[in-house]
């Protein structure tokens, strides 16, 4: 299970990086999104999967899943949400301002 999930994470990394390296702003942001998913799955699977009950004490289980990575990922989800939202609007504004969403054409001027 862990090894399968790690491979899934690897696939997400690959397509994420490929999208990040492309020219269109939308693709780059989608790439970031996929990459984040990969990181989350990776974090979960490194810890070991399906061991014990959900980390709720009401379950009265003998053992629980490690809550630390979950708290970590929860934080990460929210941060990546704000990152995605911000970069989306940034991309949107860039397009409105410059009329293009191609990062190759958005190249800064050579100084002087």
């Amino acid at each position: 299970m862990e090894i399968l999930m790690t491979i899934v994470a690897g696939t997400l990394f690959t397509s994420g990086v490929y999208l990040i390296l492309s020219k269109t702003l939308l693709r780059i942001i989608m790439g970031l999104s996929l990459f984040t998913h990969g990181v989350h799955i990776m974090l979960m699977s490194i810890n070991g999967l399906k061991r014990g009950a959900a980390p709720l004490l009401e379950e009265q289980a003998a053992s629980y899943t490690d809550p630390v990575p979950q708290a970590l990922i929860l934080t990460s989800i929210v941060i990546s949400f704000s990152l995605t939202a911000f970069s989306l609007v940034l991309a949107y504004r860039t397009y409105k301002e410059h009329g293009t969403d191609d990062v190759e054409r958005l190249r800064g001027q050579d100084h002087e």
Binding site: M44, Q70, I77, A85
Partner: peptide, 29 residues
């Protein structure tokens, strides 16, 4: 499946909102 109900809930809602944002922001792109 990973026994992380909090994460599943959050991810579900975040994904909904993010997708909506994607659609909103890129309507004119």
């Amino acid at each position: 499946i990973f026994r992380a109900p909090d994460l599943a809930l959050t991810q579900l809602v975040v994904e909904t909102i993010t997708t909506a944002l994607f659609l909103l922001a890129f309507y004119f792109l």
